[in-house]
Design a protein around this nucleic acid. Structure first.
Lengths: 338, 338
DNA sequence: TTGTAAGCGTTATCAT
DNA sequence: ATGATAACGCTTACAA
């Protein structure tokens, strides 16, 4: 297995084994029909030469790349990394590679990457894409979306998740509950969470004043900014439900900065259950999405599509569950009801 | 720009433009010599047909893939994601793609992936690899390592970083200082941090009893386990320096579980400055590595190597800086000195 | 069961 | 400045 100077090709192996290139190719691809003796001879030649396929040649000849393209705004968002981890597990199990491409939510980059992926990848996984990113791909390549829209998509039950969170706060006795929204224009999940919140409040007969809906932008900075606005209102909320954990962490920061104690002065619920929520001060109550599992499921669905197996379902909705930690408590008596 | 059913090839564009394939290829690749008129005619044909290169064909014919292969144990470690983000920025700026492959620290997978990358990628970025992973690649492909070893590597100044952390604790008055080690067998950075710690303690005339060195394994679970051992010792340390933030967070958990207050009963310093350290309870004092910048630098170094530009330096060592947060304080009078 | 022939779409090389 | 031709290493389709 000394390192060959020039890459070993099928032809080299064929010569060593004393067979044709096709026979070698068939052995490599586990084609059924062939004598055991030949197979073993080729096998030995393969090892002796240290052969490695050339993916480019295989892709060109076979019209498939064995690559799953992942298109995502950023790779260092906790939400994204958990999903990626799940997807990479599924891809490796299927012998496919994961190529990761970022768009930074920049429409120009989105188009560029999409165009590239159309010929580069056998299938595309869209993670938290902007609303109509999928259309860019047309029919050229199978696409699975991780998020609340798309022809085929994997998502969490946002509406119910938001409802659970809201009911949790109502159950503790809160009435003045505010919501830190996500970015509607881009992500449908945000709209579904807000709708779940509002529907639950309405069902409970609780009015939500317009200033109790602030844009947390799915980011720490946005959450901090928005929470500051809420907490300096003449009649501030006693609880905040944030559309994701990152904005909830921002809100936590704002509360600390304003000298408010969580959960005594303010209850806080997030969404996602990213890892950081278990180590914050205090640990955050949040709505859990099984992100790793969702990534794995999405990749598997995509792999089915690539292989031509029409999958059983094209929309998978995972249940959302409440993870109760220490950021929620009953409101203080003097601020509790309005 | 209607979507063509069968992909547009160079030949198609050539026909539309009334030139040869090579001319089209030259236009696409910005080759200098050609009349402005031809260039524009080809340009128009390119747009009219909606041509997109076939990366597989280009890779096969041109013997390069425009792909940077990233080999890393996992994608959802905070350390890794920050580095990846930096690398993806640099790669995109250079028009290269990032293909991400995971090894789970499994030697078999490492070999497999490495073999694949040798023909698949133009260059390989090794993130936090096991000790001799690089050797797998031989001379076949340029390799840059993110970590404390390798022919070409980007790392932080581990020794000084550990020294700064240790001096910080000594300066606060701590004498009984323990260390949560990383995995020596795999990662040289761990050894350098331990050495920096021990050298600083020795220089200060402080003996470190052997039971004050425990394996935190660079993980939360490992850190928690090891810290439990330390904190239940007959003479427990008043301060712990952990080899990375994840094990420091584990130690924090252990301290809480044992009813110890940080920093009153125990001071804690981590290493890395991953994002989570700013939101823990209390926020962690830690040694910062500029991870994103390091990833970017590593990718750029690799790109230089790929392009054949021999880079100015093959080892870049970034400075480590202390980030003082709330997990460190002077020891309590009754436990302070031994 | 095995082999032959013909591409796949691009770039390198060498002519013109 | 432009073009003809031959690779690149593999797979598909078909023949033996």
């Amino acid at each position: 297995m000394a390192e060959p100077l020039t890459p070993v090709t099928l032809a080299d192996v064929a010569q060593v084994a004393g067979v044709s290139k096709m026979t070698v190719s068939n052995v490599i691809n586990n084609k059924p029909s062939m004598s055991n003796e030949t197979r073993q001879r080729v096998q030995r030649a393969l090892e002796a030469t240290g052969y490695v396929v050339n993916p480019a040649a295989r892709a060109l000849a076979g019209r498939r790349s064995n690559l799953i393209g992942v298109l995502t705004p950023r790779v260092n968002w906790p939400f994204v990394t958990e999903v990626l981890h799940g997807a990479s597990v599924a891809a490796e199990a299927a012998g496919l590679n994961l190529g990761i491409f970022t768009t930074a939510n920049n429409p120009t980059l989105e188009r560029e990457r999409a165009t590239l992926l159309r010929t580069l990848a056998d299938g595309v996984l869209l993670v938290a894409p902007s609303a109509d990113e999928e259309h860019i791909f047309g029919q050229a390549v199978p696409v699975v979306t991780l998020g609340a829209h798309g022809q085929r998509s994997i998502q969490v039950d946002n509406h119910t998740g938001a409802a659970i969170a809201t009911r949790h706060l109502l159950g503790l006795g809160h009435r003045r509950i505010a919501h830190l929204r996500g970015k509607h224009s881009h992500i449908l999940d945000a709209a579904q969470r807000e709708a779940g919140f509002l529907a639950t409040m309405q069902a409970a007969g609780q009015a939500v004043p317009p200033e109790y809906l602030q844009d947390g932008e799915f980011s720490e900075e946005g959450g901090e900014r928005a929470a500051r606005v809420l907490l300096t209102l003449p009649e501030p909320p006693t609880a905040i439900f944030a559309a994701n954990d990152r904005s909830a962490i921002g809100a936590l920061r704002a509360a600390h900065a304003l000298g408010l104690r969580v959960p005594q002065d303010l209850s806080l619920v997030g969404f996602d259950d990213i890892h950081a929520t278990s180590v914050t001060d205090p640990p955050l109550t949040t709505v859990r999405q099984p992100l790793e599992k969702m990534g794995e499921t999405a990749a598997r669905l995509l792999i089915d599509l690539i292989r031509g197996t029409e999958p059983a379902q094209s929309h998978v909705i995972f249940p959302a569950t409440l993870v109760t930690r220490a950021s929620t408590a009953p409101p203080r008596a003097d601020r509790g009801s309005s």
